[in-house]
Nucleic acid binder design. Structure first.
Length: 433
RNA sequence: GUCGCCAUAGCUCAACUUGGUAGAGCGUUCCCCUGUGAAGGGAAUGGUUGGGGGUUCAAGUCCCCUUGGCGAUCCCA
């Protein structure tokens, strides 16, 4: 809806209006509580970083770096990028702030906007919010399982239904190169039957062929060698342990040998949590499912970005996607009560004193709404009514002179006059009931 | 990048096969009721029909361009 104004939000970006804030707040509260319980410390990083941090960290062949980054040149000639994700900045912060010398693992969480220049569509925006949990300095598979658990718990706590957790291992520098070779030669022999995109992927990133949804690639895919059969001993053990831990915690998951993450830095465990949208549309299996969470282990990244070799594991969630899902699953938020008390004033003297009365209530931590801009009592009561107010305080010339105030019960219309210095007590008592 | 669908008041939508001062509900403000809300009645407020160009005697309606939204593809949270 274009307005008279010539200005509008940049493509794929939106204002987050007060009604929407409630969702962000709710998600924030849940995430923050869970983070606190599991001992994660919150971190904020600048929304821009040196461009190179991402090209080195995420990988040059990825779309994120290739074509989706917002690059800005500073007057000093630096090339900065709006962060397209949080992992690389967190690794940078970990190294830069000497967190290697803290007791390991170091656990961090974050909550904030990211930027990717791409075509907006369902659940995808150019400015979007993510929250995430990352752990550094812990190689044990137990942490992989815990990361999954944390996200699972967050989504559970938000009352989201129909979630599917998929897990896979993509090996490490020991076994993946060999597997990739195997896969490459497998697909090269069948290149003629692959879709256009997969032909390109064959050169750029073979693993991604496994993720292809194209009909013609499915059958070729299903006979392809599977990474799980080619993991080295260490990776195999690690993965087995992760699954055992997940079983132990009782998190339902599915193995998906085709699950490949788009970012280069992952090693061993990768996982995603989807919402299964089958309820929304009866036909058309789950081709429409949306990833809410994605992450895994990235044992090489800290070193790649200039730190000591440090194992790491973490994941990120898309806040708008979660919010959209909450809406479509009709998850209600407790509605914000503006106030239970309204202060109506009449006449100049009363209005002036009302400002003070309001302060008394603020100190007593009782929310009081008002409409000082309106002078007619009718209009003020009307306003109070629409706010769903329980008690309206009526303060006019007469009351101001006598040092009293009227408490009106908005449900039954009963009114009582009390001394001004007793009004806070009176209201407190009534609100208790 | 590529491809579809869409754009009328703050919101939700009307306006038949090309033509009358573009309407309604909701909202907002006010009045009926000069110190008392919810119901009811009345009034006001609202638009360069997203923008630009073209065809035509005449365009919200047809054509082109543009901007934006939604969705698909690619990719990803």
């Amino acid at each position: 809806m274009a307005k008279k104004s010539k200005f509008q939000c940049p493509i794929g970006m939106h204002d987050i209006l007060p009604e929407e804030q409630a969702y962000y707040q709710k998600i924030y509260d849940v995430v923050s509580n869970i983070a606190d319980f599991y001992g994660f410390g919150k971190i904020d990083t600048p929304i821009v970083e040196q461009e190179e941090l991402f090209s080195k960290g995420i990988g040059l062949a990825t779309d994120i770096v290739n074509k989706e980054m917002y690059i800005l040149k500073t007057k000093g000639g630096d090339s900065l990028a709006l962060r397209p994700e949080w992992t690389a900045p967190l690794v940078r912060a970990y190294i830069e702030n000497g967190m290697q010398s803290l007791p390991q693992p170091v656990k961090l969480w974050y909550f904030g906007p990211c930027y990717r220049y791409e075509r907006p569509q369902a659940g995808r925006y150019r400015q979007f919010w993510q929250f995430g949990f990352e752990t550094f300095g812990e190689s044990s598979p137990v942490i992989d399982a815990q990361i999954v658990q944390i996200f699972y718990n967050v989504l559970q706590e938000l009352k989201l239904k129909n979630l599917i957790t998929e897990v896979n291992s993509i090996g490490d520098s020991n076994c993946r190169p060999y597997y990739k070779k195997l896969l490459t030669s497998y697909f090269r022999n069948r290149v003629a039957s692959l879709c256009v995109d997969c032909k390109r992927r064959l050169k750029e990133n073979v693993l991604r062929i496994l993720d292809c949804q194209e009909e013609k690639c499915q059958s070729i895919k299903s006979d392809a060698p599977q990474i799980l059969d080619h993991l080295c001993e260490e990776c195999h053990k690690h993965f087995k342990d992760v699954l055992e831990f997940l079983d132990e915690i009782g998190i339902p998951y599915e193995l998906n040998p085709y699950l490949v993450r788009g970012l280069d830095y992952y090693t061993k465990t990768v996982f995603e949590i989807f919402s299964n949208k089958k309820e929304d549309k009866s036909l058309e299996e789950d081709s429409k499912r949306v990833a809410l969470v994605g992450g895994g282990r990235y044992d090489k990244l800290v070193k790649v970005l200039g730190g000591r070799e440090t194992p790491a594991c973490g994941a990120a969630a898309g806040i708008e996607r979660i919010k959209d899902l909450m809406k479509s699953q009709e998850i209600k938020l407790p509605k914000e009560v503006l106030a239970q008390v309204f202060l109506a004033q009449l006449g100049g003297l009363a209005k002036r004193r009302s400002l003070k009365i309001l302060e008394i209530f603020r100190k007593a931590k009782i929310k009081v709404a008002e409409s000082f801009g309106r002078d007619s009592l009718k209009a003020q009561l009307n306003r109070a009514d629409r706010f769903g107010i329980k008690y309206t305080l009526i303060f006019g010339q007469k009351e101001a002179l006598e040092g009293v105030i009227i408490i009106r019960d908005m449900q039954n219309g009963n009114q009582e006059t009390v001394k001004l210095d007793k009004v806070v007590e009176e209201i407190k008592q009534r609100l208790k009931k």
